[in-house]
Computed example of a mutant assay.
Amino acid sequence: MTLPPFLAAALPPASTGPITLSPLTLFMEADIVVKIVMLGLLAASVWTWSIIVSFSGRLKTLRKGCEEYERAFWQAKDMDAFVKERGKEDLPSAQLLSAAIGEWRRSTALRGMQAEGTRDRLATAMGSALAGTIDRISDRLNILATVGSVAPFVGLFGTVWGIMRSFTAIAGEQNTSLAVVAPGIAEALFATAIGLFAAIPAVIAYNRLSHGVNRLEARLQRFSDGLYTTFSRELEA
């Protein structure tokens, strides 16, 4: 049956097929600027996960190594023998002990050594060694913080650009139907989704790994306090 012309004009246009919203399709049909944004965010996500995996493993290894090293040190009967045997190990606790022993030997070799000055120099040397060690350990955490704070805005830039492109398509075709604007808006929102996909793990990992670094720093500080107490008793003796 043929509809009257005024009824036929009121009906929506026939669909030419389902609109595919798969990630690959959204990427391939996106504007070149939005594609660059998406690729940059995906690269940042891969970089973030590589840092998370490597940093987590390294932090766990350092924590266990320091625990074993400090236990062996406090159980050792001869400090000089222990330093000679294990003083060069690549562990934060070993570096802290090496700094303390080095300053102790230099200070006690001075003529007219003063106990108070030696204590001050020991505290300064161990504090500097501890700060340098923590700085080296947490070096790549700033990358996670940067990705976590910047990635959503980069994705938002891609979204704004994609929506501008959709409005340009509306103006060019002089058609405001959803079929015209939906693909462009979907591509734009996909850029924001990728930005969040990169940012959320980075923020969570930054908080968790920072907590792990703080725990390691607290452990090293306790070890430093123990060394300071030991050397202080030696000075009094």
Rank of each mutant, 00 (worst) to 15 (best):
G155M: 04
T118H: 02
M28Y: 00
I101R: 09
V33K: 03
F27N: 03
S22H: 05
T146L: 13
L91W: 07
D139V: 06
L144H: 05
E103L: 02
R111S: 13
T61I: 08
R106F: 09
L42I: 15
T108L: 09
G132D: 13
R111G: 13
M28N: 09
E68D: 14
I137T: 10
L130D: 02
P13C: 03
L141W: 04
A100K: 05
G40E: 06
M113N: 06
W74L: 09
L110Y: 01
V37K: 09
N142L: 10
L42G: 08
I51V: 15
T25G: 08
L96I: 12
I32E: 02
D78A: 07
L11S: 06
R140A: 05
A43V: 14
P23F: 08
K84D: 14
V33P: 01
A10Q: 13
R71P: 00
K60H: 07
K88V: 02
A72W: 01
L97F: 06
L130C: 04
R71W: 01
S138M: 02
E89V: 03
K84I: 07
G57W: 06
R63N: 04
A43C: 12
K64F: 11
V147C: 09
T16K: 12
S107E: 15
D80R: 12
I32A: 14
L42Y: 10
K60W: 04
D135T: 12
D135R: 14
F73N: 06
P23H: 07
M38K: 02
S93M: 07
A94G: 09
M126Y: 02
A123E: 14
R119P: 00
Y69F: 15
P12M: 07
T20R: 09
G117S: 12
R140D: 13
I36V: 15
A14Y: 04
A81Q: 10
R140P: 01
S56K: 11
G17I: 08
L41S: 05
G112C: 06
D80L: 08
M113T: 14
A81Y: 01
G65V: 09
R111W: 02
I137W: 06
I36L: 15
T25W: 07
Q75Y: 01
A44N: 03
G40S: 13
G117L: 14
T25Y: 08
A109G: 12
E116Q: 11
E85W: 00
A81F: 02
A100W: 05
T20L: 11
L130P: 01
D78H: 11
A14K: 14
A131I: 00
I134R: 07
G148L: 04
L24C: 01
I32N: 03
I32Y: 07
L59K: 03
E89G: 01
M38G: 01
K60L: 10
T146I: 12
A72N: 13
F55K: 15
K77P: 00
S22G: 13
S138R: 10
F153S: 03
L24Y: 03
W74S: 03
I52Q: 06
L41G: 04
P152H: 08
M79E: 13
A99M: 06
M38N: 02
I134A: 11
E116H: 07
A129R: 06
